[in-house]
Amino acid sequence: MADMDARLIAALRRDGRASLSQLAVDLGLSRATVRVRLTRLIESEEIAGFTVLTRADVAPHPVRGLMMLGIEGRGTERIRGALLRRADVASVHSTNGTWDLIVELGTETLEDFDAALFAIRRMEGVQRSETNLLLSTRRGGAG
Rank of each mutant, 00 (worst) to 15 (best):
E45C: 07
T95S: 06
R17N: 11
H61E: 15
T98E: 03
L101V: 00
A32T: 13
V126N: 02
L66Q: 07
R80F: 08
A119R: 12
E43T: 15
I79M: 01
V36P: 03
R122E: 14
G141C: 04
M4Q: 11
L105Y: 04
M67H: 08
R40Q: 14
T54G: 13
L23N: 03
T137A: 05
A11C: 07
R64C: 12
R74M: 14
R37G: 12
V52N: 12
T107Y: 02
V52Y: 14
H61W: 09
R139E: 11
G81E: 13
M67Y: 04
T33I: 04
V58D: 08
D114W: 05
L101S: 00
L38T: 07
S136H: 06
L23T: 03
S21T: 14
G97C: 01
L69T: 02
L23K: 03
P62K: 10
R128Y: 09
G140C: 06
G143H: 02
L83I: 02
F118D: 12
A32D: 13
H61V: 03
A119P: 00
T76D: 08
R122G: 06
I47K: 00
E72A: 14
R128L: 11
V58H: 04
Q127Y: 06
R55T: 09
G125Y: 09
E46R: 12
V103D: 00
R85C: 13
T54M: 10
P60E: 09
A142Y: 11
L23I: 04
T107S: 08
I42L: 14
D114V: 03
L133S: 05
T51H: 14
I79S: 01
T51D: 12
I102L: 07
L135F: 11
A2T: 13
D57R: 08
S94M: 05
T51C: 10
L29W: 02
Q22N: 12
L12D: 02
R17T: 15
V36Q: 15
G28A: 10
E45G: 07
P60A: 09
S19N: 06
R80V: 00
G125Q: 05
G28M: 07
E77A: 15
Q127R: 13
R74A: 15
A32F: 11
A18Y: 01
G65N: 03
R138K: 04
E46M: 08
A82G: 08
L117R: 05
V103L: 05
G70N: 14
G143V: 09
G16M: 02
I47V: 09
T95Q: 05
L8C: 02
E111C: 03
W99C: 00
T109S: 14
G49A: 10
E130I: 10
L27Y: 02
S91Y: 08
V126C: 00
R55M: 10
R128A: 15
